[in-house]
Structures are given as C-alpha cells and as structure tokens.
Amino acid sequence: MSIKLDQVVKVFGTQRVLDDVSLTIAEGEFFVVLGPSGCGKSTLLRLISGLEPLDGGRILINGREVAASGLHLAPEQRGVGVVFQSYALWPHMTVAGNVAFPLETAGRSRSEVTRRTEECLATVELTRFADRKPADLSGGQRQRVALARCLAQGASTILMDEPLANLDPHLRGAMEEELSAFHKASAATTLFITHDQREAMALADRIAILWDGRLLQADAPEVIYRRPRNRHVAGFIGQGSIVTVRVTAAEAGTAHVRLGKAGQDVACVADTQPGTAALLLRPEDIEACGDEGAQLCGRVERSVYRGGFHEADVAVEGLDAPLMVRLAGRPAAGERIGLRLRSGWLLPA
C-alpha cells in the first residue's frame, strides 16, 4: 500500500517537531527516513502508525485518509505493522505463539491460525525455532519474529523504528541482507527509520533526509550522495569537502570554477550562474599525483588509516577548507601533494 503525507505538522509544547512534511511512499517501496537524533524521525513513524495524533496536514494509506483535521483512525484500523527497537515480544510465549497472537485476537479459526503462522515463520526462515522462547534467540532472530508477527496480522505496510540499533556491529550487515530478502519475499511497503547513513544506503530504494523537522531531500541513494540539494545533506551523507569557489562560466550543465590559484571544469546544475558557489568534492573526485599534471598543490595536515588506504586532509592555498584525499601510502605531516580533480558537484544556490 502507498503512504502519502501532505503538509504534516506535529507540535510538542512550543516546538514544531515536524514542520510541513510532504512525501509519497510508493506501494512495495523500501523507503528510509534518515536524519540525526531529535530530527523527528520516530515521531513521523508514530503519526503514520496512529500512535500519535497530528496537528496539521493529513496522512493517507492506500488512498484512504487515516489522519487529518478531526480524523484519527486507531492503529488497528490502518493495516500497518510496527517493529520497534525492543521488538516488543511476549517473553512467556513461544515464537509461534508470538506470531499467532494477532491472528487469535482477531478471532481466526484454529486451522487458519496454524496455517498462517507456519507461512509467516517460513517467510522469515524461523520454522525450526517455532517452539523456542524469545530469550533463547539471538537479537537478529528476535527481529525476524517481530517481522513475522507483522505479516501475520495482515500488515501490507511495515514501519521499522531503528530495528538494527540494538544489534552488535558485526550482526548488522547480516541483518541488512535479511531485511532486503524479507522485503522481496513479502512485497510489503516498508518505512525504515534510522540515523545510520550506511544502513540507509544499503537498504533503501529511496531516502528522505529529515533535519530539524523539515524534509530536505527525498531521492534514490545515488542521487542523495552525488547530487545533494544543500550543505546539510552534503555534510550528512558520505564524506567529502565543501569549499567556496568562483564560477567563471557555466553552460550545458558544466561550470568552470576557480579553486585557489587554478581552474577546473566540474559537473554542476545546469542553471548555475557565474559568481560565488559551494563545491562538493567527494574523496573519489580527487586523485593524488605528482607535480607534473597537477591542477592543485597542497600540504597534508593530518591522515588516518582506514584499512586499505590512508585518508588525508590536504590544505590548498586559497581554499577555505581542506580537501579529503585517499592515498595508498602513509603521508607525512606537511608533505606536499599534487592533486587532480575528476569531477565535483556545485551545490544549488
């Protein structure tokens, strides 16, 4: 089912936790809301699920209004399932009992409860754990029980509130693969809340960046990374440097910019005009080279070993921020390095 938020507002006291948020999540999409702590991510999920009333705007699920001025459908009337950080499993019930619970409370027949429980456990590959208690499972397995319970209750939309936050780092990668597999198997529309950009990039069909209650950008992961709309998005997603440059000419989507004492053609928005602008350079946009063929020269301020390469901050005369450069060998502090630019992105004005 699709989800549509139309100018949604939520206020706690005098603070607008969500400020005029509008977005559409397509049926079957794995949609990730990403942002720093306190930006309103979990509040957004609670509004969609019906756990909080909104203060402005409206929410539609599969084309039906579920929240608007004077309207607030209860969570059980919205057809959504929620997976919280804690998973919220009944500790005294078996895995099968937890999955069967929403079916039993809905008054389904015993045969239907048994059949549907087996189907949902098979979807998340937990059939052989049906008789265990949650305490006897790993964190990843408990998460899968929570997902199976969402499927059992007939939820075609699943909302996940930082479900990987309580897992050990080594388990997160495996669970990302499991979540992707689960999404493909269930075809459920999925809204995933996280503050971890790596998780977002690995899982999302599209990512929405939320910042201080406002939606900054909603796009495919590669668009968010390569063509961020502003400094907040550029600084929050990935690594890189943002430097002030002088655009001397622009046409056909390419701008000629002045960096320090050298000039270089870089990719940019088509309507960029000559003048001062902010240029985003990712580490892969910059190549270290010898003096011959170098477009810029700088000196290493600091370096950190990242496993397989060294990440260096290189100060270039005339630039207001150091450039982040990846080097094969360990550079010495103060070492002079030639640089050549492959590409770049001029942030929209």
Rank of each mutant, 00 (worst) to 15 (best):
L281T: 14
E292Y: 00
H256Y: 12
C289P: 00
L281V: 13
A321R: 12
T254L: 09
E317S: 15
V325E: 05
A315K: 09
D285N: 14
A270H: 15
E301C: 05
C268T: 07
K261D: 10
A277N: 07
L323P: 11
T276G: 01
A315E: 13
Q273G: 00
V304T: 03
D320K: 10
A294M: 07
E317N: 14
L323M: 14
R282A: 08
V300Y: 07
L280F: 11
A255E: 05
V269E: 11
H310V: 03
R306G: 04
V269Y: 11
A321F: 11
R306M: 13
L323D: 08
E301S: 14
P322D: 10
C268E: 06
E317F: 12
Q273H: 00
D265I: 02
Q273R: 09
V266I: 14
G263V: 01
V266E: 03
A315I: 11
E287R: 15
D271T: 13
V325N: 11
Q295R: 08
P283E: 09
Q273N: 01
L279F: 08
G290C: 13
F309A: 03
L323Q: 11
G275V: 07
C297V: 05
D285Q: 07
G307Y: 07
L319F: 07
L296C: 02
L323I: 10
P283T: 08
A321H: 11
G275A: 08
E251T: 10
L281N: 12
G290D: 15
P283G: 07
V316T: 05
G263T: 01
C268N: 09
C289G: 00
D313H: 01
A267W: 06
E284P: 00
V316M: 13
G263M: 04
L280T: 06
G263A: 11
T272H: 13
R282T: 02
K261Q: 09
A278I: 02
Q264P: 02
H310R: 05
P322L: 03
C289R: 02
L323A: 12
V325S: 09
R299E: 10
I286V: 15
L259E: 00
Y305F: 14
R302M: 10
V269A: 14
G263K: 01
R299G: 02
V304G: 00
Q273V: 12
D313Y: 02
Q295E: 15
V314E: 13
A252C: 01
P283C: 04
G307F: 12
Y305D: 05
A312F: 15
L296D: 00
Y305A: 07
P283V: 05
A252M: 12
V314R: 08
D285A: 10
L323V: 11
V257K: 08
C297Y: 01
A312D: 14
T276Q: 14
C268H: 09
C268R: 02
T254Q: 07
G308V: 11
V266K: 03
H256D: 13
T276V: 08
D320R: 05
T276I: 10
D285T: 03
S303P: 02
V269N: 02
G253T: 01
D285K: 06
A255C: 12
E317K: 11
M324Q: 13
